[in-house]
Amino acid sequence: MNIEQIFQSLQKGKISPSKAKKLLSLYSIEKIGSIAQIDTGRKNRKGIPEIILGERKQLLDLKKIIKKTLSKNNEVLVSRIKKKDYSKILEFSKKNKYKIKKGKNTTALLIYKKNIKKTGGKVGIIAAGTSDIGVGEEARLVCESMNCDCLCSYDVGIAGLHRIFPVLKQFVESEVSAIIVVAGMEGALASIVSSIADVPVIGVPTSIGYGYGEKGVAALASMLQSCSLGLTVVNIDNGVGAGAAAANIANRIKTKSTR
Rank of each mutant, 00 (worst) to 15 (best):
I38H: 02
I125D: 02
L77M: 08
R56P: 00
E75C: 11
I126F: 10
V199M: 05
T119M: 07
A250K: 11
V204M: 09
K68L: 12
Y27I: 00
K83E: 12
A244N: 01
T232N: 14
K256S: 08
K82R: 15
L23F: 07
R45V: 10
I65Y: 02
Y86Q: 08
G209S: 10
G54Q: 03
I125F: 05
H162K: 07
K72G: 00
L189Y: 07
I35W: 08
I3A: 11
N238M: 08
A178W: 06
F7D: 08
S177F: 04
S25P: 01
A36I: 09
G124K: 08
A190D: 09
E4F: 13
L151T: 07
F7Q: 10
G241I: 06
L26C: 01
S153N: 14
R80S: 11
G103Y: 09
I100W: 07
A250M: 11
S93W: 04
S9T: 00
M185Y: 05
A159L: 13
E30Q: 14
P49S: 12
G160A: 14
A247R: 07
Q58N: 13
A242S: 09
V199K: 01
M146S: 02
S145E: 02
S191V: 08
I52Y: 05
D85A: 09
D61S: 13
E214R: 10
K43I: 11
K254Q: 14
T40I: 09
N105A: 13
S257P: 01
K122W: 03
A127I: 06
V172I: 13
A246P: 09
Q225F: 00
S131A: 15
I158K: 05
R56G: 00
K215F: 13
R163N: 08
R252F: 09
V193H: 00
T106W: 14
L220K: 12
R163A: 09
S79M: 02
A250E: 10
G47W: 04
I192C: 05
S93I: 00
I35S: 12
S28W: 02
V76T: 03
I29D: 12
V156Q: 01
E186Q: 04
G239V: 11
K169E: 15
S16N: 02
E138Y: 12
K43D: 09
V123G: 04
I32C: 06
P205G: 05
A20H: 07
L168M: 15
I126C: 12
F165R: 03
E75Q: 15
C143H: 06
N115L: 12
I111D: 06
I249A: 08
K118Q: 12
R259V: 08
E137P: 05
E91F: 06
N248S: 15
L110E: 07
S34P: 00
I196R: 04
R252H: 08
L26F: 04
D198G: 00
A197E: 10
D237F: 13
I51V: 15
I6C: 03
V135H: 03
I164A: 07
S71H: 07
G134V: 10
Y27G: 01
G243I: 02
E30K: 15
V201L: 05
G124T: 06
G184M: 07
N105D: 14
R140G: 00
L53K: 04
Q37E: 15
A188W: 01
Q37C: 03
S25L: 15
Q8N: 12
C143L: 09
I29P: 00
V142S: 09
T106A: 13
L70D: 04
S93G: 03
L229K: 13
I125K: 03
I65H: 02
